[in-house]
Design a protein around this nucleic acid. Structure first.
Length: 496
RNA sequence: GUCCCCAUCGUCUAGCCCGGUUAGGACAUCGCCCUUUCACGGCGGUAACGGGGGUUCGAAUCCCCCUGGGGACGCCA
């Protein structure tokens, strides 16, 4: 088998969304699976739509995801398009299409010489007029082929069009869709080379995939309908065709194509919401692919993914992106982190919340927080009570059928005494004291701890109580218990 | 309008190619257990082959039609 070479070929017209990254991920996985090469090629043949910074964003995103690229734009190429960044390079460059123009020109001329293409000097205005007339007559809009038989000079401003066969019969075996057939092509003499000298997507993709020796073309299935053109083009050039794999779409929960309305779609947002890149990668790969054959594994190490990935089990149908499952998976990944990794991951989120914490404190509380969060941005709210001088208290959560205001006051007062008398404000000491108190009062620990929980942390849902107290320290803990006692003085006696 | 693609629990999917399963797993949801709250973990429940025709002893699986969804028909990609 010849070397497996896959490419991801985005156009820098905006910020790649999660569906686009999935295509890249599958290409990358396939290359790695077969020990081949993964190539990044930038398709910037539409100068009008190019967005500054798009390539750099792409490169940074791949870096965050840990997707390594074997060949791609070099630093020099990136400088040329005004997006300086550390480049990649490779033997088949340039990897930015706007820097490959002579290649397309040459290819188009070859097609004219061999009778597969012709020059056309019809202006956009003429074409628009033609289209309107066709629509008025309820005909299929499309170029009439007026210039097919004319001899348009190479010196006039013109485009190069492909001479579409009248009744092509084309069957392609697609690696995910299987057999796909056409007996007519839904395109009439498409433009290959634009009048500005830039190629259209169709010409560029075929020429580049050939010259870059791409073995597998993975792309979104909205391209399926232009596949016959590409096949015809490969044949016209006399080039061997790559294997095609057209991937189904990723949808939002309403069944429409995934967009911002559905929630986060840019990697940037996932990152700032506290998703781990490994978790996101794992989940995204699972949208539309499964190991199949009764294999029920869902959490995959990068190596597992590379080992098991195959086009055979890519789904034909489009899939809905499920944020629920993603956040579940993210939680699994967070829990699997070592203490050091979790600490490092949490840092930016604590910094952002303006929260500082002494290492001793963090060490006590971190493992319990790690066990509880599903995304990194849930950390700060959970341990706010450790970092703020003043806290808001959800007072109503304190009461219970066995606990009214006077009972709560009593608990606070006695807990104050018990905790004050402790030799060491350790988790074990605190636990002993408070469990002892519950026994003395003949109260169930749950409700009684609830009073202290709200008093000290302000919240109903927190990390475990003794650890929280220990991390907070004796002084602050007692102070909050006393503050709460004062607050309760102002509550009507019957309480909650 | 023409052409192409797609169709299993609410969601992601296994099973389909090579007909025979109590149609399996995961997320979500509900209940129970564990338990100081929450989370984790454990156990259990609800929940699917879009419809209609064939072929066959037997169809989620093979064939046809319908319906529904998506895509394409540009000097955009």
């Amino acid at each position: 088998m010849t070397e497996v070479r896959t490419r991801f070929a985005p156009s820098p017209t905006g910020f790649q969304h999660i569906g686009g990254f999935r295509t890249a991920l599958y290409s990358w996985l396939l290359a790695r699976h077969f020990g081949g090469k993964f190539i990044l090629r930038v398709e910037d043949t539409d100068q009008e739509r190019r967005v500054a910074g798009a390539i750099k964003y792409l490169l940074e995103s791949f870096e965050w995801l840990g997707v390594d690229i074997d060949e791609g734009p070099s630093s020099a190429e990136l400088d040329l398009v005004g997006e300086p960044y550390k480049g990649i390079g490779g033997d088949f460059g340039p990897y930015i299409q706007s820097q490959r123009l002579p290649l397309y020109k040459e290819a188009a001329e070859k097609l004219i010489a061999t009778g597969f293409a012709y020059r056309c000097d019809c202006t956009p205005e003429m074409l628009e007029k033609e289209r309107l007339e066709q629509m008025a007559r309820k005909e299929l809009p499309g170029y009439s082929g007026y210039c097919r038989t004319r001899n348009v000079s190479a010196d006039t401003r013109h485009v190069v069009r492909f001479k579409m066969p009248h009744k092509p019969s084309i069957t392609v075996i697609d690696a995910v869709k299987d057999r796909v057939s056409w007996d007519q092509v839904p395109m009439r003499d498409p433009v290959l080379l634009k009048s500005d000298g830039f190629p259209t997507y169709h010409l560029a993709v075929v020429v580049d995939d050939h010259h870059m020796r791409i073995s597998h073309v993975l792309r979104s299935d909205e391209w399926l309908s232009s596949l016959p053109l590409h096949v015809l083009l490969f044949d016209a050039f006399g080039w061997e065709k790559p294997i095609f794999a057209h991937l189904p779409a990723v949808l939002g929960s309403d069944g429409k194509k995934l967009s911002k309305r559905h929630g986060a779609t840019s990697l940037e947002t996932f990152k700032s919401d506290g998703y781990l890149s490994q978790a996101l990668l794992n989940y995204v790969v699972l949208v539309g692919w499964s190991p199949g054959e009764g294999d029920e594994q869902e959490i995959f190490k990068r190596e597992d993914l590379i080992k098991k990935f195959s086009l055979d089990h890519v789904n034909k149908a489009s899939a809905v992106f499920d944020y629920n499952k993603l956040i579940w998976m993210n939680g699994m990944y967070i829990r699997a982190l070592s203490f050091e990794e979790f600490t490092a991951a949490a840092k930016p989120f604590l910094d952002q919340a303006g929260m500082q914490m002494a290492p001793e404190r963090w060490k006590i509380i971190a493992p319990h927080v790690q066990e509880r969060v599903r995304a990194l941005n849930e950390i700060a709210p959970m341990i706010e009570f450790l970092c703020r001088d003043q806290i808001e208290r959800e007072m109503n959560s304190m009461f219970h059928k066995e606990i009214d205001v006077s009972r709560a006051k009593q608990i606070l007062k006695l807990a104050d005494q018990k905790l004050s008398g402790l030799g060491d404000f350790s988790v074990a000491e605190i636990e002993g004291a408070l469990r002892g108190l519950a026994a003395e009062l003949n109260l169930k620990p749950g409700p009684m701890f609830g009073v202290l929980r709200v008093a000290v942390t302000g919240k109903k849902i927190t990390p475990p109580l003794f650890e929280s107290f220990s991390a907070l320290g004796r002084e602050a803990t007692l102070q909050r218990i006393r503050e709460t006692g004062v607050l309760l003085e102002n509550v009507p006696a019957q309480g909650g």
